[in-house]
Design a binder for these strands. Structure first.
Lengths: 112, 112
DNA sequence: CAAGTATACATAATTTTCTTATGTATAAGA
DNA sequence: TCTTATACATAAGAAAATTATGTATACTTG
């Protein structure tokens, strides 16, 4: 995420969330999708993405399937059953976090 | 922030934001204020907070003033002029970031 | 047809920013 | 007296990025 050094720790959640929406995605596709959704604001770096994907796979949340397309290798990732549960868990955890963050950033609205 | 390892990188912004609201605050007070605002959800650890305060001071964004209260030392921090500008900058940077994050988490709303 | 850009994977070194553990010290409450 | 709260601080280690590098194929452009 090169748009700034904000938000370390949300990349795994983003990946899981995108895979809830879309059955199968490959790494490069994820970087492009995030770029598109944020109108170029988030640029996921390979050095962050690939280790994250490998870790999620190692933890049993993702499975892979390699395809050769136009002479290039693509490694498609999809959610396992556990990955599906983890996606839901991580997303709501992140949303709760964001709600709390808003309370701190806008203290007037939360408490006096 | 022990509630999770989410959002590394937002602590300095939180500190600067709180000091926009409240002229002077000391470290322990900041931990308690954040705890109060989030109903106990965010617990800022000393190991994270003090180095952050020292860094912000070293960067010229905060000035300190030590007081002895009830036999205990308190180190009050307040925003410098540059700190004030930095607070505004960091907060809007974070808010833009959060808006983009929402676009990724809720792709349906952003794009098809 | 050579060079640059895009696609597609991956890893290593380094940096940033936490957590956890530890240390010092005073005050208040059980 | 012992535990909890207040109040500071630093050090070791872990987590998660950034930056740099490497490999390889395809497409575009001059």
């Amino acid at each position: 995420m090169s748009s700034s050094k904000l938000l370390k720790g949300s990349l795994a959640t983003i990946v899981l969330r995108l895979l809830e929406e879309q059955e199968k995605m490959y790494g490069y596709e994820i970087t492009q999708k995030v770029k598109q959704l944020t109108e170029g604001e988030f640029k996921i770096t390979e050095g962050a993405l690939y280790p994250t994907l490998h870790k999620l796979e190692a933890e049993g949340y993702l499975t892979t399937e390699t395809q050769l397309v136009d002479g290039r290798v693509r490694k498609y990732y999809s959610l396992t059953k556990e990955g599906n549960a983890e996606a839901k868990a991580k997303v709501s955890e992140l949303e709760e976090f964001l709600a709390n963050l808003q309370k701190v950033l806008n203290p007037k609205l939360g408490l006096g």
